[in-house]
Nucleic acid binder design. Sequence first.
RNA 1: GAGGCUGUAGCUCAGUCGGUAGAGCAACGGACUUUUAAUCCGUAGGUCCAGGGUUCGAGUCCCUGCAGCCUCACCA
Length: 508
Amino acid sequence: MTGQQPSQTGRDVGMHEAARREKLSKLEALGVDPWGGRFDDHQAIDKIRQREAEIVTSPPLADDPRQQPQQTGPRVRAAGRVVLQRKKGKLIFLDLQDWSGRIQVMIGQNQVGQQNWEVALLFDLGDMIGVDGELKRTRTGELTIFAEQLHFLTKSILPPPEKHHGLTDPELRQRMRYLDLVHSDGAMERFLKRTKIVQSIRRTLDAEGYVEIEGPTLHTIAGGAAARPFATHHNALNMPLFMRIALELHLKRLLVGGVERVYELGRVYRNEGISPRHNPEFTMLEVYQAYGNYETMMDLTERIILDAIAATGQPQQLSWGDATIDFTPPFARKTYDELFAEHTGIEPDDHAAICRLAEQIGFDTSAKHPDVVKNEVFEEKVEDALSGPLFVLDYPASICPLTKRARGRPEIAERFELFIQGMEVANAYTELNDPDLQEQLFRTQLEGQKEEDSMAKMDDDFIRALRHGMPPAGGLGVGIDRLVMLLTNMSSIREVILFPLLRPESEH
RNA sequence: GAGGCUGUAGCUCAGUCGGUAGAGCAACGGACUUUUAAUCCGUAGGUCCAGGGUUCGAGUCCCUGCAGCCUCACCA
């Protein structure tokens, strides 16, 4: 940016900003507030477009020299941003955009009067204006508001992106999401679709009698998942605190408290790497139902997803990149061991063969619990290949410290994960409610697992709650951002999070 | 954390073999009352991401750093 004129704050401004600030002064000289104010009773542009049918066309008057058909249309009022502008002598055509759509506005010097015209000459791309006028069609058939009165609502003193290409640099689109929303095709729709999905999930759960609660986000023990937490500190209590990594343990305390159907849909924080599928903060749904089990949760998961698809107005077959995902229920269900054998050709209980394969892949198998090795192989060989939607059932119990064991099969945990396009979208258990077993599992770290890598973190307060009696229950977790990715055909989580974490902008 | 790619005008992008920094849009001045990525005439606009090195000479080659994207790792 080249310094040409200092702004009021002393900052150097470029030629674009200088030109816009000059127009701002001219607006003030005309008695127009460049920052606008309340503007009532405008209609959404997509609603205005729907009124096209109200336009009445009659034959041209005989003495009309240009033989134009006579049109009478409804009077409309719109507000939005000027995104394209064509100044043509004593006519100005501009495209006005609000969050529902775009419409052309025509301003004629002789039609709007001198004051309006002088204001209109000061319009820049990006300015926000209000328009009163008649909805008609131009000679070329374009639906247009023929302006009668203009209202200046806000000056934009920085230039918008290039009008045809918009912003393409993903860094700029994420840093300046406001510009992305205005100028990138599909950006606004995508984030509004995310809102619809989240609304739909709440509606589905509310309708089935689940109550939404708000648990603490500051935890003294960051439990309920295997992840490193963000550490923080409370000054007055002089106490270390952690941002929550899961919602689980407080929701289960509420099961103890008699809240029989409960959920939380909110943000969790994990101090881990960033990737197209991982953001340090992300949105998680967890649902618990007293007297249910993981099969109850499987059915619920299907209903939540199918309702969300319907809420976005999409069919049950969705394209995702080059692939098509078929959400027609019921989703396939296969056991962990079944899939393990299918994809590795090794019997799930042949530990020696599993270790050989693990070492072939390059895993260190020494001093590791057999199920940890097996699961590493599973994640490597099976998970990425699961196009889904597929429920993977019945995990090795030893890697599931918060899950109830299958009746008569203590080596199996009643757990499922839902895989779609290689992504883990949901994870559910029949919840472990035996306080003694839970305490023992918290105490016993599996060999080869660092404490921070384990879901088993001792939480005495939680154990005490279990001793008071937690009903047998089903519990479900859903990664909302990933679900939104799948339902909006986005391959990066950063495209479904409004403001993903970025490093600070460099000075250079 | 590792590897690959990218970084040039407000935006989108060219820039050949190392030899004076380019275009389109946007901006500024002018023409134009049915345009629509308006058109036409003219003008202005640069810390080539930052720092170092090689060279007579670096946007271009080399090194270091910063940021983003992709792949991998961790993880959901």
